[in-house]
Design a protein around this nucleic acid. Structure first.
Length: 417
RNA sequence: GCGGAAUUGGUGAAGUGGUUAACACGCCGGAUUGUGGCUCCGGUAUGCAUGGGUUCGAUCCCCAUAUUUCGCCCCA
């Protein structure tokens, strides 16, 4: 038997219903928040992700799916969504008009990592990018939009963790201070942190191993090394969050795994037990230098990405998902009735009524059972005798009332119910 | 990449080194030969992830592989 590749999964039955619901909410919400849909390629030039996500990040160094096509082009399956959106923004010269540009995407991403609960090699992210605004209202919108969306989907205990990484200069100043502080304690840190000390000292802050050590408890705060402008900006973000009634918690150890972030960064965490270690359902932040870095005009941006699989997982705990009931189920036994069944089904469907009938040659009894399984609201029980008189037998599956309706009026009769 | 656990039908699962692998749900058929959902009766794994090994004999013991899962790393 050929099985699915490791780290991939099929979406069927109940999962499919959950996915449909999530996707509907996403499209609906994005419309009301005035975001335009964007779809970019699933593979891009390898170079793109090195320049955006960062050469030293794990995502790029250990987790990408890289391949050469038949003309030896170096390509990579996208590990995240922002890079492609920014590339498209520049390539299509979207900066020329209609700024800021508010975009949303919803598609599969690929990372070669160890699969687990809420983690897959092919996974889906929905995300939003606002390009061309440095206003704090933008930061707040990008945080509140997914927060409200998740609430609407049924999430109860959501928590926003937020931090301010400041400008590039702020971060350089802080890194310096951090290294200064850690230098005498270097031997007490875990192996990974020793490596991080040189490449990416900020990441030591959210190290799980050393988290509870006194060294990290007394570490200088990133918030103390920022310019007045940056500090005031962050204050304003928090103030606006209050206006929008978003619960948040400043977490000064929150840094993100992608290199392009600056100023506001955040995560939305769910406390649903089923998520276990995958409790972060969305995360994002500001990236004011990225567009310029990729060759576009200096454009401040803010965005987030959300893991659809994690939403689907958590939805199991929250509610029953049921298939929408069928409007009509048509039953028949002989050939004459069958022909009427297939034509009537077509007419009903074209009139906006969902309809179905048996195609496996089941007994009438089984057809009744099937109708109940589908929660059909109306049963159309065809029989030759009535058909010859131009009548069709319609039974209300709730009241059990049966009516004979003229063949020519059947569509109107059902539609007007 | 490192360490632990798991893997029995469509599903939830019981089980034992030795004839036909419980039970339940579901599904199919019948009682009711064209009006069901209740009830009753019957059917439903040549098979216990895959490949080796130990054994007279393995689903059960051992090894390997795969997949899933938990923790680390990382991250959505």
């Amino acid at each position: 038997m050929i099985t699915k590749p490791k780290g991939t999964y099929d979406v069927i039955d109940r999962e499919a219903l959950k996915l449909k619901k999530i996707n509907r909410y996403i499209d609906y919400y994005c419309e009301f928040y005035n975001y335009d849909l964007i779809r970019t390629p699933i593979f891009e030039a390898r170079e793109l992700f090195h320049r955006t996500v960062g050469d030293d990040t794990d995502i790029v160094t250990k987790e990408t799916y890289d391949f050469k096509d038949r003309s030896d082009r170096e390509l990579t399956l996208r590990p995240e969504g922002t890079a492609g959106v920014v590339r498209s923004f520049i390539e299509n010269k979207m900066y020329g008009s209609n700024m800021p540009r508010k975009l949303y995407y919803n598609g599969t991403m690929y990372r070669y990592e160890r699969p687990g609960n809420g983690r897959n090699r092919e996974f889906t992210q929905f995300g939003v990018e606002i390009l061309g605004s440095n206003d704090v209202a933008t930061d707040v919108e990008v945080i509140s939009m997914p927060y409200r969306l998740f609430e609407e989907l049924g999430f109860k205990n959501l928590n926003v963790k937020i931090n301010n990484l400041g400008s590039k200069e702020d971060r350089e100043a802080y890194k310096k201070a951090l290294k200064e502080y850690l230098k005498p304690h270097l031997d007490d840190l875990c192996e990974d942190c020793k490596k991080r000390y040189e490449n990416n000292p900020l990441r030591i802050l959210d190290c799980k191993v050393d988290k509870d050590s006194d060294i990290l408890k007394n570490v200088p705060s990133i918030l103390d090394y920022q310019s007045e402008e940056s500090t005031n900006r962050f204050k304003k973000v928090l103030e606006y969050l209050n206006y929008l009634d978003i619960d948040y918690e400043v977490d000064k150890t929150l840094v993100r795994g992608l290199d392009y972030y600056d100023y506001t960064v955040f995560e939305i965490v769910s406390s649903e037990n089923i998520l276990g270690g995958a409790s972060t359902i969305a995360a994002g932040g500001r990236y004011n230098d990225l567009v310029e870095k990729l060759g576009g005009p200096s454009t401040p941006c803010m965005g987030f990405a959300c893991g659809i699989e994690r939403l689907m997982l958590a939805m199991d705990e929250m509610e029953t998902i049921e298939k929408r009931p069928l409007d009509c189920y048509i039953m028949y036994v002989n050939e004459e009735e069958k022909i009427k069944a297939i034509t009537l089904a077509q007419d009903l469907r074209m009139s906006g009524v969902s309809a179905d009938y048996d195609t496996t040659g089941r007994s009438l009894k089984s057809q009744f059972k099937e109708a109940d399984r589908l929660h059909a609201e109306l049963l159309i029980i065809l029989n030759s005798e009535d058909l010859n008189k131009g009548l069709i037998n319609v039974k209300d599956n709730l009241t059990k009332e049966e009516t004979k309706v003229d063949e020519n009026e059947i569509i109107d009769y059902i539609v007007s119910r």
